[in-house]
Simulated scan of single mutants.
Amino acid sequence: MIVNPQRGEPVTASDEAPGLRRDADDPGLAVVLEDMARQGSLTGAPAPAITASRLGAGESYTAWLLRPADQGAGAHVLRLPRRPAAQMPRPMAEEYAALQRVPADLGSSAVAMEPSADNPLASPYIVTTYVPGRPLSRGDWYPGLVPALAELIARFHRAVDEDAPPQGPLPTATHEAEALLSWWGESHPGTLADPRARPLLEPWRRALAACDEAFEGQRAHRLIHGDVVLPNLVLGPDGRLRLIDLEWSGPGDRAKDLALVGGAITGGPWYAPIDGEQVRALVEDYARLSATLGAMPEDAGRLARRREAWELLDRLDNLLYCLSRATEEEGRRYARWADELAAGLARVVSSCAP
């Protein structure tokens, strides 16, 4: 399993368009979507008369907001791929299957899917419910969000579990680390040789090896979100947190969904500065709420150790990702984020140095 969670393979200019007959970022697409809805040829349109506007873009998709023209309730989001299917990190159909299991009160849920380009839009696409509110940023974080986040993740895990038996055994932290390094070594070898990354690798490996025992005997949960970073947490007008973007969802470790939102290692727009006391509260609240909801019991101590491992895995992965993009047009921003991540990793793994 390659970790490479929320950022994915960098998209180059030559990757974005080939194989797609529709430019996902074309400003003129708003008129196309509105015309299609009026003609009844846009699958998942909330009404025949809509207004369409661009919500934003990630590595793999551009999101378009579809609102009923009469401003009635029931807006939807159309997600259009930015790259060919062969270059997507995960098949669209798998994400859609996950979205079908998510209750609308917890976040994005399935509305419709066009799995091929054989449709009037000339591209595959997914339509989901719209989650009103705004994505969290680093400045939004405060300790009072800890219980709300613990409850959201516990309810999400329980809702998609459907009393299914556990999946296969979890790989150890060491196994995940070597898979991650192997992928970057083959795909972007220069990142591992960068002076911001190279000195970290051995103490990072040792820190992860110390967490291996917490993975032993654990089995994967049927479905985790896989990318619970700040931009994927929406704070609604009702004050509740909800999840969006299930591109990286699938069977996995429940502890991973507790690790990606933040902790001691931060950098860029993805992570909140969450201190040790808040981390402990997040893990303990999650374990308690999961048990209350009837989920498979989880020892809080082992859960905390695995969360620690996933923080280390994710942050090095993201450091390497930022290094891989540091020469692009927006390279200064990625270089700055790489500096922040490297400094945080160095602080955390320094105790493992000989």
Rank of each mutant, 00 (worst) to 15 (best):
R222N: 10
E311H: 08
R315T: 15
A209F: 05
A75V: 00
H188V: 13
L293K: 02
D339K: 02
G139T: 12
D339F: 07
L201A: 08
R325Y: 09
G267D: 05
S53R: 15
R333D: 12
H157L: 04
V77P: 02
G19D: 00
E95Q: 14
A98K: 03
V11S: 10
G262A: 04
G139M: 09
S137Y: 02
I153M: 05
P171I: 10
P251I: 02
G217K: 00
L323R: 10
D25S: 13
L180K: 00
A104H: 06
A85Y: 03
G139A: 12
R240G: 02
L241E: 03
L106F: 07
G19N: 10
P18Q: 12
P48K: 04
E329Y: 12
L29M: 07
P231S: 08
G268T: 00
R336D: 14
E59Q: 13
A210W: 01
D161K: 05
G28K: 08
E16L: 14
A220N: 01
L260V: 00
A259T: 03
L323F: 00
A57I: 01
A209N: 03
A150N: 02
E94S: 14
D285V: 03
A173L: 11
Y125D: 04
R205F: 09
W64E: 03
P147W: 08
A154D: 09
D339P: 04
V279L: 14
S109C: 15
G74P: 07
R134S: 09
P68F: 07
R305W: 06
D212C: 00
P143V: 08
